[in-house]
Write a protein that binds this DNA or RNA. Sequence first.
DNA 1: TTGCTCCTCACGTCACGTGAGGTGGC
DNA 2: TTGCTCCTCACGTCACGTGAGGTGGC
Lengths: 132, 132
Amino acid sequence: MSAELRRPGRTYTIRQLAQEFGCTSRALRFYEDKGLLFPARDGQTRVYSYKDRARLRLIVQCKRVGLALAEIREILDLYNRGDGGEAQAVRSLDACRARIRELEQRRVEIDEAIRALNIGVQRLEKQLAGAS
Amino acid sequence: MSAELRRPGRTYTIRQLAQEFGCTSRALRFYEDKGLLFPARDGQTRVYSYKDRARLRLIVQCKRVGLALAEIREILDLYNRGDGGEAQAVRSLDACRARIRELEQRRVEIDEAIRALNIGVQRLEKQLAGAS
DNA sequence: TTGCTCCTCACGTCACGTGAGGTGGC
DNA sequence: TTGCTCCTCACGTCACGTGAGGTGGC
């Protein structure tokens, strides 16, 4: 990515941002529909600012760790109201901690499932060995 | 559970099976809609046989390890065509192994997400400590 | 005129949850 | 008559994917 691409004040098309962040333009429209993004318009066409790009970056990062769009929206809303960032930090901290607990729980479930599947595999292998 | 409940030849209502296997009657109707179950009818009312109960048991076990309903249906279909169980065993083995790979991949992703979240938590805590 | 990107619906996915509205037998 | 269980639609959830059908500027 060139420095040009990150210059504040410049604008982006929907496809440019989608490619840069590895998502589809449909996803960007969807985020807008859900109130996470609100780009300017040139006629019908969406025009994304440097700030929109920053918001999208946060969205993508949060999604990567599995936060739901509704949660991400809350965090973005706090940022937009500009409480000096503190309210946003508190909310983000809550969301991160809750998500960590969920993921740790999920990991336990996955380990159990893998154990159960391995037992099943052994049983099936034995059955097939006996059948042939 | 009494021996009476497991006697072959007896029948079950939708609610009885749902309670026994910890799902809802809506779920049982859904499985039927998707071709995984096909209980008899007494007028409008569904009547589940001992075999239906065995099928449901397999469905619940497969679901617990995260197999999709479509995959479970394939396995059940093989069982129903009665290839002596071998075709079903082969298909089950494939499904189990594929699922194990998926889960191991998922575990890696979860570990990465947890690591990223912990870094975020530390950063946010530092930010809040500096702000107050 | 052809091609490209953009746009707006709107249905499909997955596994059900959740009413709404109605029925049969104690 | 009241209560209980059963039933059939059919929309809602979540994060988009995927056409369909149309537009604007090179």
